[in-house]
């Protein structure tokens, strides 16, 4: 049967030649922005790419697999490329061009009818970690059940937080930006070995106070609306779209607003990148047009259409720098 399938496959592929535009893979967080750019390019009469949402890690794997024509030309990432990924890329003859495109905020939100929250990373760590240091510095299973137990100024509500599963980039970013920061504030943890620190900081509690609610952020918003006592963790664009239903908590006294994320005052935000395969530039149609559109002021500028979709723009000088890098297609040789 496989033989038949193979022969059918090869004949059909040969017959049609399988010519289509270039491929983009990568982060589901950048996906909504990359797709809008692609749509604009296509409306202007350019070549529209095919955009797959594979997640940052999966995208890197496909992108770095080689420089052949059947590999993706661009990968989206909601974090910077890792050293081992870059080495893998180079080993396969792939030179990535790094373009930072903007920022994404992560909201810790609850229903409009619920109390207002003003949290710090330490408090979030104490509320969500599996093990926390007791008064004498020893690690104990997380004893906190109520926000009030952590800080008397917090609302008198049971701790109940809905968040994404470990496969999600949002979860990675939350752990890195909130849990790690909150965790490092405790001297007793800092002195443990690096592996131990990582384990303590990155392990979320499993006793029901933190609930993995799936990858779908819309679902978390719906659940928050139904349960005003719960908090949820999801991307800023979902908060913006549902501003009549949910409100974001302030972190370190900074409200989650467009301006605060852009200025870096709101601490839970992460950079978004696209990586272009230098080997494909000039050989595959449409890459330059796509990158030019992405890095144009009408797209990623302060009032560009990407900001309408919830992306936070970079400061003007940073934009200029990355736009220049993009024009020159400057390859990334080391981190």
């Amino acid at each position: 049967m496989k033989k038949l399938a193979l022969s059918v496959a090869t004949t059909l592929t040969l017959a049609t030649g399988a010519v289509h535009a270039f491929d983009i893979v990568g982060s589901s967080t950048v996906y909504p922005f990359a797709t809008v750019v692609a749509e604009t390019v296509s409306k202007k009469g350019g070549v529209a790419p095919k955009i797959e949402s594979t997640g940052t890690g999966g995208g890197m794997k496909l992108f770095c697999a080689g420089a052949g024509a059947d590999t993706p030309s661009i990968t989206d990432a909601s974090r910077r490329i890792k050293q081992n990924e870059l080495e893998g890329c180079q080993a396969n003859g792939v030179t990535p061009v790094e373009i930072k495109v903007g920022y994404d905020g992560i909201a810790i939100a609850n229903a409009k009818s619920g109390p207002d929250f003003n949290l710090t990373p330490q408090e979030l760590f104490l509320a969500l970690a599996k093990e926390v240091p007791a008064d004498d510095g020893r690690l104990v299973a997380n004893p906190y059940r109520n926000w009030k137990d952590i800080n008397a100024e917090l609302p008198d509500e049971n701790i109940e937080v809905l968040g994404p599963p470990p496969t999600s980039g949002t979860r990675d970013a939350f752990v890195e930006l909130v849990m790690d920061k909150g965790c490092e504030a405790f001297d007793s943890i800092k002195n443990a070995g690096p592996d131990e620190v990582k384990r303590i900081c990155n392990t979320l509690r499993e006793d029901g106070a933190f609930i993995e609610a799936g990858e779908n952020d819309n679902l978390i918003v719906q659940k928050l609306e139904a349960n005003p006592k719960a908090l949820g963790i999801f991307g800023f664009s979902f908060l913006e779209q549902n501003s009549d239903k949910v409100k974001g908590a302030s972190i370190n006294g900074q409200a989650i607003t467009f301006e605060n994320i852009a200025s870096g005052a709101y601490p839970v935000s992460r950079p978004l990148y696209i990586y272009v395969k230098k080997e494909h530039v000039g050989k595959v149609d449409g890459i330059e047009v796509f990158v030019n559109e992405f890095t144009s002021d009408t797209a990623w500028g302060d009032e560009g259409y990407l900001t309408d979709k919830g992306m936070i723009p970079m400061p003007a000088d940073e934009r200029q720098q990355f736009a220049d890098d993009a024009k020159a297609m400057k390859g990334l040789s080391s981190l």
Binding site: L12, T13, T16, A18, H20, A21, D23, S28, Y31, P32, A34, T35, A38, E39, S42, A48, K50, I51, E52, S53, E215, N216, D217, N218, G235, S237, F238, E240, Q241, K309, G310
Partner: peptide, 27 residues
Amino acid sequence: FILSTPEGITDPATVLPVQVFLWSDSP
């Protein structure tokens, strides 16, 4: 995310249930 209508079996395409999945995940 595919902007062009597939015209043959080797054009990139998505299918109805996947379209449902993609839309349900949009903000």
